[in-house]
Every structure is written in C-alpha cells, then in structure tokens.
Amino acid sequence: MEAIRTKIEVAGAGLRPVVGERQAVFEARDVSVFYGDQLAIDNVNIDIYQHLITAIIGPSGCGKSTFIRTLNRMTDLVPGARLSGQVRYRGIDLYGPGVDAVEVRRRIGMVFQKPNPFPKSIYDNVAYGLRILGMRNGLDERVERALRSAALWDEVKDRLGDTALGLSGGQQQRLCIARAIAVEPEVILFDEPASALDPISTSAIEDLMHELKRDYTLVIVTHNMQQAARVADMTAFFGLEVAPDESRRGVLVEYDETEKIFTNPSDKRTEDYITGRFG
C-alpha cells in the first residue's frame, strides 16, 4: 500500500511513465460489442491499470458507455447485446464459462450518469447492498465509513433517516458513490458521473475521485475533455468510424498518458477532437 502511494505521488510530480510497474486490472482483447446486427464497438484493445484514474473520452455515439459497461457485465442487461473477444479482470475472462455476472458486479461497482438513489432513507441507501450481501456486522460503522469516503458524512450525519430523494443532485451522486463504496469493490466505474451536475458539485466529485484512487481503480467515461484532463492519469480516446455502408462503429483511436493525449497526441483524429475541430 505504502509503495503504491509513493509511486502515485512520484507520478504526480511529473516523472514518467505513469504506469511504471503497475499491474493491469483489466485487459481488453479484441473486444467487439454488437447490438443485434449493429456493431457498436470494434476490436478494442486496452489495459487499465491499478490505482489510476483512466478516462474514456470521445464524441457522442462512439461507444464509450458501451465499453465501460463491458467491464462489469452491465452489457448483459441489454437485450440482444453480444460481445466477442476477451475482457480479462486480474487474468480471469469476465465472459468465460462459470463466471457469474452478479459476483463480477459486486467487485466492480458503478456510478451512473443520472444520480439514481433508491426511494429509501439515506442510511438505507448505503446499507442496502451491505444487508443483501450479508455484510451486516458493524453496519453503522460501515455506512459511516462509506459516507465519509464519499465526502458526504458531515452534510447528512444528522438526518440519516431522511429520504435520499430530498438531497441535492450533487449530494445524491455522492450518495450513489457511497453506496458503491460500501460493498467494498475493487474497481469503480463512472459513466459520465457529473454530466447532470452543476460546476460546484462536479468539482466535489472530481476531488473525491482523486481521494478514491488511493484505494480503488477508477474508470470514468466523460463528455467533458477538461474533466478528463483534470482527473485522469491515463486517457483513452474513442472515435467514430464510418464504414462504406454508412454504418457507424466506435473504435479506440489512441490510449496514452493524459498529458500526452492533451499536449502531443500521436493520432491526427485525437488532435482534431481535442482542439475542437471535430465532434
């Protein structure tokens, strides 16, 4: 733990490479996703590293959300969705035989675009997963710890019994993060977590992500390039490729350290996108 922390600080000080000897948590190999006959993302190959924040950026419809949802098998929930290739999580093929999607999602949590708290009390929102997954010992402490980690504790500690629907959008989103943290996942996926929030709430979420990467591996899909530049260590740029028959598919154009992507991208398409000439 100490060693990793030091490495992050070194990386933050501008020494390269960011990845160093970090372990790849996810290895996506030739991943294509189809919705029915429609190819949504084509042949994505990417390694996502432990205790880093990896951002996925790109224009609308390029398959960013589709890709992040392959990482915890949320793609399974879309009727007619099919995946080819391999997504390995710590060496295990997530789509291999005998792998249970429910078990996968317990280890790889997710925060969604729109805050989606349950219509229950603040406390019950966080305790929900804990109770169902049998993590009942020290429930109060676990709830408090999760709320503290999500930087929400001080705002809600006196009204844990109130409905979560009475919180502001930014608070609701932090509650959703607390809910995800509570069940002690190893990875948290963020699918455009701040796109429905005001700038102050957005900045709170971003600060929080910096805190969280000490303990978790984070992947964030974002529309907002500044956000990617602010929070991410590594950035993947997804682009749209138009086939001769006019069908569109998402492809991974470039994946590198965030600073490289935003200052000196290797691919013309990345450069066009980040300089605003496209998208």
Binding site: V102, M110, F118, P119, R179, A180
Partner: peptide, 27 residues
C-alpha cells in the same frame, strides 16, 4: 419503475430477483 433503479441495484452485485423484491416492487 425507472430502469435506472434496477441498474443501481444490479450494479451492486445484487441478483435480479432480490432487486425485483427489494427495489422494484416497493417502488
């Protein structure tokens, strides 16, 4: 019942049946 509530529960590693019973039906 919004599908975002089902997603929220499923993403926590809760099975479909528990999700239906604990989130969808109460809503």
């Amino acid at each position: 019942v919004p599908s975002s509530l089902r997603e929220a529960s499923l993403a926590l590693g809760v099975s479909r049946w528990r999700t239906t019973l604990q989130v969808v039906v109460p809503s």
